[in-house]
């Protein structure tokens, strides 16, 4: 067991301020505090080498959880164990085995080339020359970074800088990697490369990775298991395929007709989600997909027909909104 979290809660005291000068003066004299339950009573376990997608809407408690796991935040309640350590102690042996990469925080020396930061990290983590060289070569190749290693960081583009930030963060080959929005601000091509890299890293270094992201493509392509969190609570923890079965036990059937079709005739096919001649989109339960498809082909003049899995975005949205309703 690499990570085990039981009944973790994290509450913040946030002080409230009314807008304007009077509000500021008021808050000087009388401070109102409100308790915000960023995370309340969550538990999960993660095994070595797992690559987990940690998803939820803004303010759901993802980053707070990652900060607790990496030892930046002291939990209000509950127990955390990462690699057998209590993260908050921030023991050197623990720090040498983890990394937290945050899309919006940088550790590179702004005026110097990235390689200077790497060399510093080499000393900070006490990496031996031989091992450093191997990892360095490998990461350079995987990230395709040879040309930018010696360019001052301030002259790099955002995507290049993200690559270098990532490289600086994992030059000590951490066993546990927490990634908070690693693909934020990157173009589609870079996102893809970064995903491939993470997959490769996960396999090659047998690293345990937890990843938060707003891009479902990240999660879909990288993670077998997802944990969905909302309002500080876990609402789903399991295989991505189970999530699809549970929340979307249907397939998306799109048909393009050759000739005009009377909409009334289509009604009996089932739950039509959109019909605008010539295109029909219909959600069909998994079991009925064969019969529905063949009946369409038999009874209507079809130009083209495709069967797709529902979009992961749609499913996640469904999960969130269901939870919202339950809340209310």
């Amino acid at each position: 067991m690499t990570i085990s979290v039981s009944h973790l809660s994290k509450h913040f005291q946030v002080h409230q301020k009314e807008p304007g000068v009077i509000g500021s003066l008021k808050s000087l004299v009388l401070r109102k505090y409100e308790t915000v339950k960023a995370v309340s009573d969550i538990s999960f376990k993660i095994n070595e080498g797992e690559l987990i997608g940690f998803i939820g809407p803004n303010g759901a408690g993802k980053t707070t959880t990652l900060k607790c796991l990496s030892g930046l935040l002291y939990p209000t309640n509950g127990k955390i164990s990462v690699l057998g350590f209590n993260p908050y102690d921030r023991k050197i042996e623990f720090l040498k085995k983890i990394a937290l990469v945050m899309g919006q925080k940088n550790q590179l020396w702004w005026d110097l080339p990235p390689i200077d930061t790497f060399l510093l990290n080499k000393e900070i983590y006490g990496i031996e020359n031989e091992k450093y060289n191997i990892v360095f070569e490998e990461l350079t190749k995987l990230l395709d970074a040879k040309d930018i290693l010696k360019v001052p960081v301030k002259k790099l583009s955002l995507g290049q800088r993200m690559k270098m930030e990532l490289m600086a963060s994992i030059i000590h080959s951490p066993k546990v990697l927490f990634l908070d929005e690693p693909t934020i601000g990157l173009d589609v091509l870079m996102q893809k490369k970064l995903r491939e890299f993470l997959k490769e890293y996960n396999i090659r270094f047998k690293a345990t990775i937890i990843l938060t992201s707003h891009y479902m493509a990240d999660v879909e392509q990288l993670c077998k298991r997802v944990i969905i969190i909302n309002f500080g609570k876990i609402i789903f923890d399991g295989q991505l395929s189970n999530l699809i079965e549970q929340y979307a036990p249907y397939k998306k059937l799109s048909v393009i007709f050759r000739e005009y079709v009377d909409p009334k005739k289509l009604d009996k096919l089932g739950n039509i989600s959109n019909f605008q001649y010539p295109k029909l989109i219909i959600n069909v339960p998994n079991k009925k997909i064969n019969s529905t498809a063949s009946s369409i082909l038999k009874n209507f003049p079809v130009e083209d027909i495709t069967i797709e899995d529902p979009q992961i975005e749609d499913i996640i949205e469904k999960v969130y909104t269901q939870e919202d309703k339950r809340k209310k």
């Binding site: 900060k67 990496s70 030892g71 930046l72 921030r90 050197i92 720090l95 040498k96 983890i98 990394a99 937290l100 945050m102 925080k105 940088n106 550790q107 990290n121 900070i124 983590y125 006490g126």
Partner: peptide, 12 residues
Amino acid sequence: SGNLMNFLLRPI
């Protein structure tokens, strides 16, 4: 700026 986190997470 929160950059202090980078130091808390490294053995330094």
